[in-house]
Write a protein that binds this DNA or RNA. Structure first.
Lengths: 233, 233
DNA sequence: CCAAAAGTGTTCAGTATACACCCATGG
DNA sequence: CCATGGGTGTATACTGAACACTTTTGG
């Protein structure tokens, strides 16, 4: 698989083609340090000095788009088991100065600390960036991230996908906190708990969270981790 | 522009490529005869005997994806002024037997009778088909239509896009009828009128609809035809 | 005993739903 | 005068929003 990609890379021309190069880019989100973060790679190319980009790359022939997105997340960032879904496709002729590259963007969601990003070749570094403090971004990746944030905010309100952004076990306060950070608004604690527990998506665990100088919180777990349409907030 | 496309068509190989061919396909919807219809073209190719396909075709280099979608609607079906938005991208390696074609699908909405489809070369005929009585479809166009119908149903409920599916002037009953057909459920007349009029999207016209053996209905018009997020039903 | 987060119910307002009859017209 | 679709109001249930104090723990 990688051999094919390298072959394509060598042939990658500098100008427009009659055929397009098809790429995938993934906006991988997680919530840490009270901010929504996206995973970014620092480019090591002269055309883009000190610029960052989304994890992604070419799609191989005989490869499905979603598989390509998963593969690049794995190869570039060592991330597996993220929930990913297609976001939108960006194909403006001038979006990549090196030629006609049509990029199918994906949104990925992953629980914090569930993998350790490691730099791959061709990149200087890999970093989680808060989406409101992004560095200088290559291509149209700024626009892609903006689209992804809006999609995430929208889907939080009518689906259960939050399950892929929190750890296996979590407290209701942590869950509420994730919503507040992503939706950028405060929620009422009593209303949130009442509503969320009534949805029957969670099971209470026998143990409790400890660790602070305060009353221990009950730990919960999602009973089902498959996407569902439900009115949440 | 067309010359470039023909050039690409001639080179269109029979097997996989390292570069993909990028195409657009449009699911153009309208509501007529109490059914949701999609526009289809009858193929004239040996590989697909008696099969139908969505209007669409290749994207030219230096062309934006959405422009390509509009152009193909125009060239293949003589349709202009449809509201179109990107739906999803379909890129499975085996979705097109002739090679690796990545298709960016669009959803289009157009008022009934607002254009006259005319057959272009390379197609035997062009026809509106009810989405629940589709003919045999080429490629993965069945799946694309299914995705489009679901998207349309979803967006009707939280946006004002119905404006692009009804004529310039319409009665509230016609509007309600469009909702009922697409959402596949009956709505209460009094509640529908109360709700819709309270949204302040419509203006009443001085004239009335005539034509039946019954009381003439007030005609309305959308005051604004730009997409908005609003809770409708 | 103090600080910190966990946990818990009720009231109110606004919105969604259910429901039935008279009106204006053409034929 | 009759068939057809147009047009109207009220009562009830439900849901979202606002709001403050007690509990449990660690230090």
């Amino acid at each position: 698989m990688d051999k094919i990609i390298e072959t394509v890379m060598e042939k990658y021309p500098k100008k427009s083609f009659e055929y397009a190069v098809v790429a995938v880019d993934v906006v991988l989100f997680t919530v840490v340090r009270n901010k929504l973060h996206a995973l970014l790679l620092e480019l090591d190319r002269e055309e883009f000095p000190n610029m960052w980009a989304l994890p992604g790359g070419l799609v191989a022939p005989n490869e499905k788009l979603e598989q390509a997105a998963e593969r690049h997340l794995r190869e570039r960032a060592n991330a597996t088991n993220a929930h990913i879904e297609q976001l939108a496709t960006f194909g403006d002729p001038d979006r990549d100065p090196t030629g006609w590259v049509v990029s199918v963007a994906y949104m990925g969601l992953i629980a914090p600390h569930s993998f350790s990003p490691k730099t791959s070749t061709r990149y200087k570094s890999i970093e989680w960036y808060p989406v409101d403090e992004l560095p200088s971004l290559a291509y149209d990746h700024q626009e892609i991230i903006k689209t992804a944030v809006e999609r995430l905010q929208g889907k939080l309100s009518y689906t259960n996908i939050i399950y892929s952004l929190v750890p296996e076990e979590f407290t209701l306060s942590e869950l509420q906190n994730s919503y507040e950070i992503i939706l950028e608004k405060e929620l009422d604690k009593r209303n949130f708990r009442k509503k969320f527990l009534s949805l029957d998506l969670l099971e209470e665990l026998p143990k409790k969270a400890s660790g602070g100088a305060h009353r221990p919180a009950v730990l919960y777990r999602f009973t089902e981790k498959t996407p569902q349409i439900i009115s949440i907030l």
